[in-house]
Amino acid sequence: MNIAVVVRQVPDLIEPLEIAPSGTEFDFGSASFLLNESDDHALEQALLLKEAHGGHVTVVALDFGDVDNTLYTAAAKGADRIVKIARDDAPPPPRAAAVLYAEAIKPIAPELVLVGVQAHDELDGGVAPFLAAALGMPYVGVIRGVAVGAEPGAVAAFKEFPGAVMARMNVKLPAVLGILGADQPPRYVPVSRIRGAMKTTQFEESAAAAVSSEPLTAIARLYPPAAGSRAEMLSGSETEIASRIVDILAQKGLVK
């Protein structure tokens, strides 16, 4: 199966996010970036399908943040081709980004396109459904696990619902799936293999397509959420905090 996977860089939320003086965008000057978690699962799902049924995995990414490291890691894990979309600016919103990914993916002619269902820095929907629209392919998202179905030319995708319930969806190919989780956790790859991939992997550069820049929404301001009724913070050593928690539980009759 010929599979394309989109991977994106997102700001690491361990670091505080800085708002630019304009108040309407982030100041990424001091931010660090990492691979979007659900994209990591999309890549893992693609590699699992390839290992089980054969095929070819192409990873597609916009040139942004620490993407080279992400792409070398993908190659070390088993991706066959890496396509990097050349671009100077930060990634555009999902709908416009989807057009960029679509133009890079069309020549690959994949049977299956896997994308993380969501990235935490997106405000106007995920890339995955807009990519499906741009490619003219069907879409279903919030998928946790994909199997090659009994029907030729189709896969079974497991769509997550509340209560640990899944819907088994039969998906005719070609199609785009929004991945929430892979059948297995993303694999670990040793640094030595990543270094090896750095020496042997050639990125294929793809020119960024022209994107209509007329946004349908406008950010008036970014701001940290207002602190609601913040928790009463317990301080002291771990032993002191533990003792305080026991007192609270005892007062409520939860520990006797």
């Binding site: 928790a231 009463e232 317990l234 301080s235 905090i241 533990a242 003792s243 026991v246 539980l249």
Partner: peptide, 27 residues
């Protein structure tokens, strides 16, 4: 911390053994 009634800014791996011990001592 916005929805918790109480909070503690410590490493869970440090707190867990201390809290288990404190609960067992209470009981």
């Amino acid at each position: 911390f916005d929805i918790a009634h109480y909070g503690a800014e410590v490493d869970v791996l440090d707190l867990l053994p201390a809290l288990t011990e404190a609960i067992e001592a209470k009981r």
